[in-house]
């Protein structure tokens, strides 16, 4: 555990000691700010009944931000260490493969959570301008952030996996972007396909990440979705561990 914590600290430190961490935060702030201001302009003066979190988070913007930033956050996880050679000193220290994988994942996820945190402030801005404290249901907000964290963990795990495959950050970013976009496109596809028409439709509906975010942003926690994200994350972390381990027998 100490080892994992030390590694996570180092990972997080890495973001804030290099430009990339700030670039990611600034990019998220800008993109989210853009969507936020855009929504404010659109909704200004028009009565709304959907929860604030749904209006402002379950949007296409969210996906654009996630799809762009997830690779930026995760690409360095393994690829950077491999290309600078520190991977050798890391792996010749007495650390387990799982410890390394979990720490990399934990570091990226912690950074991901940090990136989204300032945006809570936006909700308070909305609340201020509606002049109605009931606009913001703290439980729905908590549900939304829980959902964002779950979705984030799947995307971070995919990114870590992509990063573990190569020593080039660019390739890692491209690969994890493709994985992420693939999942997203599946959920777009499910919107255009009837779940009743075939088993495929039902599967697509089950894996529709867009759908899930809608539910989370309404304050609904569905065990199916939680299980989906947890198992998805576990799957990619498992693959990552296998890749890391393969160094010792390949």
């Amino acid at each position: 555990m100490n080892v994992i914590l030390a590694l996570i600290r180092r990972e997080l430190g890495g973001y804030f000691k290099s430009l990339i961490g700030y670039v990611v935060i600034a990019a998220v702030l800008f993109l989210f700010g853009f969507s936020f201001v855009d929504m404010l302009g659109k909704l200004n003066g028009i009565p709304q009944d959907a929860p604030v979190t749904e209006q402002f988070y379950a949007t296409v913007y969210f996906w654009v931000i996630l799809l762009i930033t997830a690779p930026m956050i995760t690409m360095r996880a393994f690829a950077l260490e491999k290309s600078t050679g520190t991977y050798e000193s890391l792996m010749t220290a007495p650390v387990g493969d799982w410890q390394v994988v979990l720490a990399k994942f934990g570091g990226t996820l912690a950074f991901f959570a940090l990136v989204w945190l300032p945006l809570l402030g936006c909700l308070f801005i909305i609340r201020h301008f509606t002049g109605d404290p009931a606009t913001l249901d703290p439980r729905v907000t908590a549900g939304t952030f829980f959902g964002i964290l779950l979705i984030g963990s799947l995307y971070m795990a995919m990114g870590c996996f992509a990063s573990s495959l190569t020593r080039s950050q660019i390739i890692a970013a491209i690969f994890s972007f493709l994985l992420g976009v693939g999942l997203f496109v599946l959920s777009l596809r499910s919107a255009a396909l009837s779940p009743s028409e075939s088993g495929w439709g039902a599967v697509l509906d089950y894996t529709s990440v867009m759908r899930h975010l809608f539910d989370f942003s309404r304050g609904i926690i569905d065990t199916r979705q939680v299980v989906f994200y947890l198992t998805g994350t576990a799957f990619f972390l498992y693959l990552t561990q296998r890749v890391v381990e393969s160094r010792r027998w390949k």
């Binding site: 100490n2 080892v3 030390a6 590694l7 600290r9 180092r10 430190g13 890495g14 000691k17 290099s18 600078t84 050679g85 520190t86 991977y87 050798e88 000193s89 890391l90 010749t92 220290a93 007495p94 650390v95």
Partner: peptide, 28 residues
């Protein structure tokens, strides 16, 4: 073992003491 690889890779963004501390923690 204490192994120093050929290219002597370091985390170049860390301070010396911080780095050694990190490595020491890593080694348990």
């Amino acid at each position: 073992i204490g192994y120093m690889p050929e290219s002597n890779p370091l985390h170049l963004d860390m301070r010396v003491r911080e780095y050694l501390k990190f490595r020491a923690r890593l080694k348990g």
